[in-house]
Nucleic acid binder design. Structure first.
Lengths: 201, 201
DNA sequence: CCGTTATTGCGACAACTGTTACATTAGGAT
DNA sequence: ATCCTAATGTAACAGTTGTCGCAATAACGG
């Protein structure tokens, strides 16, 4: 006889409460930013008792981790504009918009990844997923003949997007509308010069 | 009669206690990372009463901000290897070493900048100072004829260093010894292609 | 519909955090 | 040396945070 199922009850109330709590987290995040995110406030806004939130999510990091897991369940796809520079510029524009939003939920999630191992792991998985979905941008460019074969897609993508995160998230420089396009153009130039060639080709 | 001096007493005991506390912060940071940094623990290790730390620094962010201010008072200069690629690679190697140290004080300070406006401001000033000192690397390369004049030094430096921070701090990918050199090489290729040209030249 | 029990609500509790008033110490000037 | 007072030490305090045992509720299987 197989083990008679773990006897979990994810239906009805449990699912409803999870949704209420995650919504409350996003709302609190939007209003008070990450620093203002308290277990107490989340529970109150969700109309749930403190103890419930503590029991199911443990701490703020657990809450954010669950939010990140839920955020990964979408059908996002990278832009498809017909050219590499266009795709990268559009992708960077999306990132830019998310980062300069006030307050930025994305920035708050990044901040959270420094305070909780759970959130950090969820964050890493989400990012891995996003970059993997983006690799098609590079393969399409290769097919169009814009790039040499054996181009390291990941390194190219990181070169294109890293300056955005670095300036807006770490350096906290004031937003510059040229940033997305400039970074995209720089990466394409480097790629054309063979900066991301892999193997001995 | 001019105002008779603010009547501060920065000498003797006050200076000594500041040093004790800042040392304690770095020590705690090295042992328990940023999450383990408590006002209580810092005070205890410094042999000072809690109330003193609260009065002078306010909170953890204030402590880190003061550490960052103290960290800026040094005579650091960027590497001078004789070539742009060499300078950037050496610079990136310094950054790499600081970021992969376990535990990394630099990473902890970055994390702190997300939790405290004070620390964030101090961090921004320190970074501004560092990047400014690095601009000589670019001007030397221009003088040597390695780069066209009117090259945007700041954008070049950020393009060279951003991938390091992005991978190691945000993406948390495992350390790769090739990273510093690869990022430096990519930036130089882009620069040679005129990616950072400024003005109409 | 009924019974089992996972899940939540509830309230009390200890531990921790940050503040305050007052006493004590020591820097700096005369 | 002596005085003034800035800076620190001390202890008590309210507010917050996280945990626990127990009662109430509702999901799931029959």
């Amino acid at each position: 006889m197989p083990s008679p199922a773990p006897l979990r009850r994810p239906g009805g109330r449990t699912a409803r409460i999870r949704q209420q709590v995650l919504d409350a987290v996003l709302a609190e995040l939007g209003e008070h930013g990450f620093d203002g995110l308290t277990m107490e406030a989340v529970a109150a806004r969700a109309g749930v008792h403190r103890a419930t939130v503590y029991r199911r999510w443990g701490d703020v990091g657990g809450l954010l981790a669950d939010v990140l897991v839920a955020a990964g369940d979408d059908d996002w796809r990278p832009p498809d504009t017909g050219s590499l520079i266009g795709d990268l510029a559009a992708l960077n524009q999306e990132i830019y918009d998310a980062l300069v939003a006030e307050p930025s939920v994305v920035a708050a999630l990044i901040a959270a990844s420094f305070r909780s191992a759970q959130a950090e792991l969820a964050q890493r998985r989400l990012w891995e997923d996003r970059y993997e979905r983006c690799e098609v941008v590079v393969s399409r460019a290769v097919e169009r003949g814009e790039l040499p074969p054996h181009t390291d897609a990941r390194r190219l993508l990181i070169a294109a997007t890293a300056p955005l995160y670095h300036r807006l998230v770490l350096l906290h420089t004031p937003p510059d509308p040229d940033l997305p396009g400039d970074a995209a153009r720089t990466a394409v130039l480097a790629a054309s010069a063979g900066a991301f060639a892999v193997g001995g080709t």
